[in-house]
Measured scan of single mutants.
Amino acid sequence: MQFKLIINGKTLKGEITIEAVDAAEAEKFFKQYANDNGIDGEWTYDDATKTFTVTE
């Protein structure tokens, strides 16, 4: 399945899409990606669109 991350950071904005087995695997990848890029904010997930959003 495809999952999307929308980044609304103070210094980094954009979107990335990955293939993952389930939402838990996608969330783990996205949170590591955000951590690696210094993004720390509020997370939301929309199951209907398979979209995670992080907002700083």
Score class of each variant (00 low, 15 high):
Asn35Glu: 04
Lys10Pro: 08
Glu56Val: 05
Met1Arg: 09
Thr53Ser: 07
Gly41Trp: 07
Ile16Pro: 03
Phe30Lys: 00
Asp36Gln: 06
Phe52Lys: 00
Asp47Ala: 10
Phe52Trp: 07
Asn37Met: 06
Val54Ala: 14
Thr17Ala: 09
Ile16Lys: 08
Ala48Ile: 04
Ile6Leu: 10
Asn8Pro: 03
Leu5Met: 10
Lys31Ser: 06
Asp46Cys: 03
Glu27Leu: 12
Lys31Asp: 05
Lys28Trp: 08
Thr55Pro: 01
Glu15Val: 05
Ile18Asn: 08
Ala24Gln: 13
Thr49Pro: 15
Thr51Tyr: 11
Lys31Val: 14
Ile39Ser: 03
Trp43Thr: 04
Leu12Trp: 04
Ala24Met: 04
Thr51Arg: 12
Glu19Gln: 13
Thr49Trp: 14
Trp43Val: 03
Gly41Met: 01
Thr11His: 03
Asn37Gly: 06
Tyr45Asn: 07
Glu15Gln: 04
Thr49Lys: 04
Gln2Cys: 04
Gln32Phe: 12
Lys13Tyr: 11
Ala23Asn: 05
Gly38His: 05
Glu19Ala: 09
Lys13Glu: 15
Asn35Met: 10
Gly38Arg: 07
Ala20Asn: 13
Thr17Ile: 15
Ala24Gly: 12
Ile16Phe: 06
Gly41Ile: 01
Glu25Arg: 09
Glu42Pro: 14
Glu27Asn: 10
Phe52Pro: 00
Thr17Val: 09
Asp40Lys: 05
Ala24Lys: 11
Glu56Ile: 06
Asp22His: 06
Asp40Arg: 05
Phe3Val: 02
Val21Trp: 10
Ala23Val: 11
Gln32Ala: 06
Glu19Asp: 12
Phe29Val: 04
Glu25Phe: 09
Asp22Tyr: 03
Glu56Ser: 07
Lys10Gln: 12
Thr55Asn: 04
Phe29His: 14
Lys13Ile: 11
Gly9Leu: 09
Asn8Glu: 11
Leu5Thr: 02
Lys4Thr: 06
Gly14Tyr: 05
Gly41His: 00
Thr51Ser: 06
Phe30Ile: 01
Ala23Tyr: 14
Gly14Phe: 02
Thr55Tyr: 11
Gln32Pro: 09
Glu42Lys: 14
Ile18His: 13
Gly9Gln: 09
Glu42Val: 03
Lys4Phe: 02
Lys50Glu: 06
Asp36Ala: 09
Lys10Cys: 02
Ile7Arg: 00
Thr53Gly: 07
Asp46Arg: 08
Val21Ser: 04
Thr44Lys: 14
Ile6Ser: 08
Thr53Cys: 02
Lys28Leu: 13
Glu27Ala: 11
Val21Pro: 12
Phe3Lys: 00
Thr49His: 12
Asp47Phe: 14
Asp46Gln: 10
Gly38Tyr: 05
Leu5Pro: 00
Ala48Asn: 09
Thr44Trp: 03
Tyr33His: 05
Asp46Tyr: 10
Thr51Val: 03
Asp47Leu: 09
Asp40Pro: 11
Val54Phe: 11
Leu5Lys: 00
Leu5Asn: 01
Gly41Gln: 01
Glu27Met: 09
Phe30Thr: 05
Ile18Phe: 09
Ala34Leu: 11
Tyr33Val: 04
Glu19Cys: 04
Ile7Ser: 09
Thr53Tyr: 04
Gln32Asp: 11
Gly14Glu: 11
Lys31Gln: 05
Asp22Trp: 08
Tyr45Glu: 04
Phe30Leu: 09
Asn35Thr: 07
Glu19Leu: 10
Thr51Asn: 12
Glu19Asn: 13
Leu5Ile: 02
Glu19Tyr: 14
Lys4Met: 04
Thr17Arg: 06
Asn35Gln: 12
Trp43Gln: 03
Ile7Gln: 04
Lys10Phe: 05
Lys50Asn: 09
Lys28Tyr: 14
Lys4Gln: 09
Ile16Asp: 11
Gly38Trp: 14
Met1Ala: 08
Ile16Glu: 08
Phe30Gln: 00
Lys4Val: 13
Thr49Asp: 05
Asn8Cys: 02
Trp43Leu: 10
Tyr33Met: 10
Gln2Phe: 07
Ile18Gly: 08
Ala20Val: 04
Leu12Phe: 05
Leu12Ala: 03
Met1Lys: 06
Leu12Glu: 08
Thr17Gly: 04
Phe29Leu: 09
Lys50Phe: 06
Ala34Met: 04
Lys31Ala: 08
Leu12Ser: 07
Gly38Ala: 07
Ile6Met: 02
Phe3Cys: 01
Asn35Tyr: 12
Ile18Cys: 02
Thr51Gly: 13
Ile18Tyr: 08
Asp47Asn: 05
Thr49Glu: 11
Met1His: 05
Lys50Thr: 11
Ile6Arg: 10
Phe29Gln: 12
Glu15Phe: 01
Ala34Trp: 01
Ile18Trp: 04
Asn35Ile: 08
Thr49Phe: 04
Thr17Trp: 14
Asp22Asn: 02
Gly9Asp: 13
Glu27Thr: 11
Thr44Tyr: 03
Lys13Gly: 15
Phe52Ala: 04
Lys4Ile: 05
Phe3Trp: 15
Asp47Glu: 02
Glu27Trp: 04
Ile39Glu: 06
